[in-house]
């Protein structure tokens, strides 16, 4: 059921849907959405598997260990598994399931891959320093009017705008 000329949902409608999901999360759990937290769980559990002693002695990893459940059986990990399946269902319904390396025709595939890895590494690093990413800090934070949410949102989007000129050849 591919829709021609209008393949994605109207963005305001999609935003409304996302907002309702976010609201449901607050109503049910008292917290908003998240994404980088689940990635952190993967890293913490990986490090702990390699050396449990080392992880327990680290000021960073130890914060997420020692609970009743393993770091892989947490709320955010299950939520992000849901994101994976939900995204897949949406892609299947709209006929968008396809292996594709998306990039500007002006750059090589190899360059796109390196940019994705470096960008991901920066985002991952920044999300730990800044206590959450676009989902958990910016979007969820703004919904509860937290100052942290607004500051993080402005820092993320402001920096991306400020640097856009220097990276334009990778995108346009």
């Amino acid at each position: 059921m591919e829709m021609k000329g209008n393949k994605y949902m109207n963005p305001y409608l999609a935003g409304l849907m996302l907002g309702i999901v976010l609201l449901a999360s607050f109503y049910l759990t008292g917290r908003g959405l998240g994404a980088s937290g689940a990635m952190k769980s993967v890293v913490v559990s990986g490090v702990s598997t390699v050396s449990s002693e080392y992880a327990k002695n680290s000021h960073f990893y130890s914060k997420y260990l020692g609970g009743e459940y393993s770091p892989m059986k947490t709320w955010l990990v299950l939520e992000v598994l849901g994101v994976l399946i939900g995204g897949f269902i949406s892609g299947a319904i709209s006929g968008r399931l396809k292996f594709k390396l998306e990039k500007s025709p002006k750059i090589t595939g190899r360059k796109r891959i390196w940019l994705a890895i470096i960008g991901g590494a920066l985002f991952g690093f920044g999300s730990q320093l800044g206590r959450g990413c676009t989902s958990g800090a910016a979007l969820s934070g703004m919904a509860v009017m937290s100052l942290a949410g607004y500051v993080t949102m402005m820092a993320i989007f402001g920096t991306a705008f400020a640097l856009a000129y220097f990276f334009r050849k990778n995108w346009i």
Partner: peptide
């Protein structure tokens, strides 16, 4: 953290 994430976003 937000500035580093912003750089990650555009890269």
């Amino acid at each position: 953290g937000g500035v580093i994430m912003g750089a990650g976003f555009i890269i």
